[in-house]
Simulated scan of single mutants.
Amino acid sequence: MKRRSAAAVFFLPLITFGIYWIVWLAKTRGELNSQGAAVPTTWLFIVPIVSIWWLWKFAEGIARVTGGGVGSKFTLLFLLGSVGATFVQANMNARTSASAPMTTLTPATA
Results as ranks from 00 to 15, higher is better:
residue 49 I to K: 01
residue 95 R to P: 03
residue 35 Q to A: 15
residue 32 L to C: 05
residue 21 W to Y: 15
residue 52 I to L: 11
residue 109 T to V: 14
residue 31 E to V: 07
residue 3 R to M: 09
residue 32 L to G: 01
residue 28 T to W: 00
residue 39 V to R: 01
residue 86 T to L: 12
residue 29 R to W: 00
residue 37 A to F: 02
residue 89 Q to I: 06
residue 68 G to K: 01
residue 77 L to M: 13
residue 8 A to K: 13
residue 46 I to S: 04
residue 46 I to N: 03
residue 45 F to W: 08
residue 100 A to V: 07
residue 31 E to W: 06
residue 3 R to E: 14
residue 93 N to S: 06
residue 37 A to Y: 03
residue 28 T to Q: 07
residue 55 L to Y: 05
residue 63 A to M: 02
residue 105 L to Q: 09
residue 17 F to K: 01
residue 102 M to L: 14
residue 52 I to D: 10
residue 9 V to R: 03
residue 93 N to Y: 05
residue 101 P to Y: 14
residue 5 S to Y: 03
residue 78 F to G: 03
residue 82 S to Y: 07
residue 32 L to T: 04
residue 75 T to F: 15
residue 69 G to K: 10
residue 110 A to T: 12
residue 102 M to P: 02
residue 51 S to N: 15
residue 34 S to D: 13
residue 42 T to E: 06
residue 87 F to L: 11
residue 96 T to A: 12
residue 10 F to C: 06
residue 40 P to C: 10
residue 60 E to M: 12
residue 107 P to F: 13
residue 46 I to D: 04
residue 61 G to F: 00
residue 70 V to T: 09
residue 66 T to M: 10
residue 8 A to H: 07
residue 109 T to A: 08
residue 88 V to Q: 02
residue 51 S to V: 03
residue 48 P to Y: 06
residue 34 S to K: 13
residue 21 W to E: 04
residue 31 E to Y: 09
residue 92 M to E: 09
residue 103 T to C: 11
residue 80 L to F: 15
residue 99 S to I: 08
residue 46 I to T: 05
residue 31 E to D: 15
residue 80 L to M: 14
residue 4 R to L: 11
residue 79 L to N: 06
residue 76 L to R: 11
residue 40 P to H: 06
residue 86 T to W: 05
residue 35 Q to C: 10
residue 104 T to N: 12
residue 36 G to F: 05
residue 71 G to V: 07
residue 53 W to G: 13
residue 75 T to S: 12
residue 76 L to F: 12
residue 105 L to N: 05
residue 69 G to S: 15
residue 12 L to D: 02
residue 35 Q to K: 14
residue 90 A to C: 08
residue 35 Q to Y: 11
residue 38 A to Y: 04
residue 104 T to S: 09
residue 29 R to I: 05
residue 63 A to Y: 00
residue 90 A to G: 10
residue 70 V to D: 02
residue 74 F to C: 01
residue 69 G to N: 13
residue 88 V to I: 09
residue 97 S to D: 13
residue 12 L to P: 00
residue 52 I to C: 09
residue 72 S to P: 01
residue 12 L to S: 03
residue 2 K to D: 11
residue 79 L to V: 08
residue 3 R to D: 12
residue 11 F to R: 00
residue 110 A to N: 12
residue 91 N to T: 13
residue 60 E to L: 08
residue 10 F to T: 05
residue 59 A to T: 03
residue 53 W to A: 14
residue 66 T to H: 12
residue 86 T to R: 01
residue 101 P to C: 09
residue 26 A to T: 11
residue 50 V to G: 04
residue 56 W to L: 12
residue 71 G to N: 05
residue 94 A to P: 02
residue 45 F to P: 00
residue 20 Y to W: 14
residue 10 F to A: 12
residue 29 R to D: 02
residue 44 L to E: 10
residue 36 G to V: 06
residue 12 L to V: 15
residue 71 G to S: 05
residue 20 Y to K: 02
residue 15 I to T: 13
residue 21 W to H: 14
residue 77 L to H: 04
residue 96 T to Y: 09
residue 25 L to I: 14
residue 96 T to P: 01
residue 25 L to R: 06
residue 107 P to H: 12
residue 66 T to L: 03
residue 39 V to G: 01
residue 33 N to A: 10
residue 23 V to W: 09
residue 79 L to C: 15
residue 51 S to T: 10
residue 61 G to Q: 02
residue 63 A to I: 02
residue 4 R to P: 00
residue 44 L to F: 12
residue 23 V to H: 09
residue 65 V to R: 00
residue 14 L to K: 05
residue 33 N to W: 02
residue 96 T to C: 10
residue 49 I to V: 15
residue 49 I to G: 09
residue 91 N to Q: 15
residue 91 N to R: 13
residue 75 T to Y: 08
